[in-house]
Simulated assay, not measured.
Amino acid sequence: MLYLVLAVAIAGEIAATVSLKLSEGFTKLWPSVVVVAGYAIAFTMLSKALKMGMPIGVAYAIWSAVGVAAVAIIGWRFLGENLNPTMIVGLVLVVAGVVTLELGRMH
């Protein structure tokens, strides 16, 4: 259940961040609404995950790393942004760092 709550927080953050670009400086209504709602969901669910006992360092690492990777891939795939091999290596390193944190928490 804890990871489901964190997954909802991550989904909210991803939706909000992508919509932030689509809002064009908050000049488009619906993407702007998704920004506000997405971040509200993200922070509410992140705080719930923390209340349920997830360590803050691990929660934030997972939340931010998955968000960074997902937004980079969405930007590349759907928004015409660049994603070169060097950037892919960086994303892999970020995710590897989060996996290492999680493994360290389990020991």
Results as ranks from 00 to 15, higher is better:
91 L>Y: 03
58 V>P: 04
3 Y>V: 09
9 A>S: 14
91 L>W: 04
97 G>S: 06
55 P>F: 03
76 W>M: 12
80 G>Y: 10
52 M>T: 00
76 W>N: 13
45 M>P: 04
99 V>K: 13
66 V>L: 15
53 G>R: 13
2 L>N: 07
23 S>R: 11
73 I>L: 14
43 F>H: 11
29 L>T: 10
15 A>T: 09
82 N>E: 12
1 M>K: 14
3 Y>L: 15
107 H>P: 04
42 A>S: 15
15 A>W: 08
43 F>A: 06
61 A>I: 02
51 K>N: 07
95 V>C: 11
59 A>V: 02
54 M>L: 15
63 W>S: 06
76 W>I: 07
82 N>R: 15
60 Y>M: 10
9 A>K: 08
60 Y>H: 05
22 L>I: 00
6 L>R: 02
6 L>H: 00
45 M>S: 09
49 A>P: 02
92 V>F: 07
39 Y>T: 00
4 L>D: 00
24 E>L: 14
40 A>E: 00
100 T>E: 04
79 L>I: 07
82 N>K: 15
55 P>Y: 03
61 A>K: 07
10 I>C: 02
79 L>R: 13
36 V>T: 06
19 S>L: 02
106 M>S: 09
87 M>L: 12
83 L>M: 11
28 K>Y: 03
42 A>W: 01
37 A>H: 01
83 L>A: 08
63 W>T: 02
88 I>S: 02
100 T>M: 12
106 M>G: 03
72 A>H: 07
80 G>A: 09
77 R>N: 05
97 G>F: 05
91 L>S: 08
22 L>G: 03
13 E>H: 15
58 V>I: 14
89 V>I: 13
81 E>G: 12
32 S>G: 10
58 V>W: 02
15 A>C: 13
69 A>Y: 05
51 K>S: 11
57 G>E: 00
42 A>N: 09
91 L>C: 07
47 S>E: 05
81 E>T: 10
26 F>E: 01
19 S>A: 12
7 A>H: 01
24 E>I: 06
29 L>M: 10
41 I>S: 07
65 A>K: 09
42 A>L: 07
95 V>D: 00
70 A>C: 11
8 V>I: 15
26 F>D: 01
54 M>T: 03
33 V>A: 13
30 W>L: 15
38 G>F: 01
66 V>D: 02
88 I>L: 14
52 M>L: 15
29 L>I: 10
64 S>I: 10
70 A>K: 09
52 M>H: 03
50 L>T: 00
104 G>H: 06
1 M>T: 08
101 L>F: 08
53 G>Y: 08
107 H>R: 15
28 K>A: 08
34 V>Q: 03
53 G>W: 10
61 A>S: 13
90 G>M: 03
71 V>I: 12
42 A>Y: 01
86 T>Q: 11
62 I>F: 05
104 G>R: 15
32 S>W: 04
85 P>V: 05
15 A>V: 13
77 R>M: 11
35 V>K: 04
40 A>I: 05
18 V>H: 04
48 K>V: 11
36 V>Q: 05
62 I>D: 02
32 S>Y: 06
